[in-house]
Design a protein around this nucleic acid. Sequence first.
DNA 1: CGACTTCTTGAGGAGACTCAAGGGTGGTGG
DNA 2: CCACCACCCTTGAGTCTCCTCAAGAAGTCG
Lengths: 244, 244
Amino acid sequence: MDAGWDYERFKAFTCADDDDIDTFRRLAGPTIGLKRGEILRMQGAPDPQVYILLSGWVACSIIVGESARQIVKVHLPGDLVGMPSLAAPTACDTIEAVSAAKLGVIETAAIGQVFSSNPRLAALLFLVSQQERVVLMERLASIGRTSAASRIAALILELRTRLRRNDPTIENVVPVPLTQEDIGDMTGLTPVYVNRTLRQLRTSGIATWRRGVITIDDRDALAVLAALPQSPERDTSWIPSRRG
Amino acid sequence: MDAGWDYERFKAFTCADDDDIDTFRRLAGPTIGLKRGEILRMQGAPDPQVYILLSGWVACSIIVGESARQIVKVHLPGDLVGMPSLAAPTACDTIEAVSAAKLGVIETAAIGQVFSSNPRLAALLFLVSQQERVVLMERLASIGRTSAASRIAALILELRTRLRRNDPTIENVVPVPLTQEDIGDMTGLTPVYVNRTLRQLRTSGIATWRRGVITIDDRDALAVLAALPQSPERDTSWIPSRRG
DNA sequence: CGACTTCTTGAGGAGACTCAAGGGTGGTGG
DNA sequence: CCACCACCCTTGAGTCTCCTCAAGAAGTCG
């Protein structure tokens, strides 16, 4: 744990080993602290940077029209934040702290260095991006083609799965610092309707989401409701080995 | 043009130069031909491969529940197809030909080789993935937060922009081999409502979509309706140079 | 020319939204 | 320690966008 960065989390996320971690750690620059609700950078800001989330949660969102907001990703500790804007002159999304958070800045040039000097780590970064694409694709399918209850069920299961990578002891009680408005912005619903849908999940004995804590009462029913495949593990055999 | 692969298209797409192209060309294996409607591989199929689209259009979709389909990406010639499933033991999406199409197979191991032997090209592949993420994020915002008319407007503009990379002479007449059902599966709408929305766009003098051809009548109005930022160009200064 | 897919339009219904008001909860300052 | 304030949650009533079901027309391919 250097400057609070949860390396174990990052290792699990990328299948990186200790040497990879060492290499990567050297990339992280100064640390930034954010209070809940604080904005790290706005969509459209010039010269976007890449960050690594050390602690807390941040949300990346896109503003549509005058006021509508769509959260495209909530990041948990260990996540790389801001990669999609890597090659853009201006940021394509807004990064905002959902809870108090700390981030390390990663110079864009350092990413290029990884590709030159550490092909294995570069491939791991590439792989992480593919996984992020899959998550986005599944969220797209969820929002485009399912009911409010299904979208929220899928969200609950996604958060549970991701949090379990950090903390394998998590089972049916999942701490989540999102407001109902945040949930709406993630699922494409209004806060009012999120509230009604949560009540429906609660009264039907499937899940209870209250005061920042989800309690899953019937995981099978939740999975059926979500209607999305639970992705299995990854195959990393194609990644270059360290010596070769 | 080797085996019909539009290298110029790929070069424009990735900012790759001739040497990069040469390297990449060696990766492409056997060519596969598909008729319209034919499925290359189903979601859940084991050992997914990566392809390069040589000609025609293919769609990647996710099945939700019993019958609902969400198209997460339509690919144009030059695109890399199937990357998101790269590290998964089973394919996360179904690849289907929207029009007659040809694809080259790319061995998974060859991708790893690129990372070992050609960091510059690896970085370009990485960059392309980030761009794909941005496109997904914007589609997510569109579907999650805008009306049917806005979604279709955004789709029209996205297709126009991408096709113009292939053929810069395209202005207001855009050839698009998608059925109204396909449009619905891309935008999260039913085919019936797509039809009504297209009529609405037509009668309000914004755009006409008929028989595989979009005619844009008022591009400014279309952009306002789409309500999404038109992304500017990329900054690739961080990519490793060939010698260095 | 015939079979099939795709498009078009109508009528009715439901899921999600908007507007509005009241009740909790936690944080801050006196 | 209490009171106030801001934020968030909760619920009701009414509306509208979009969906479902259905049938026929138009286009396309063999």
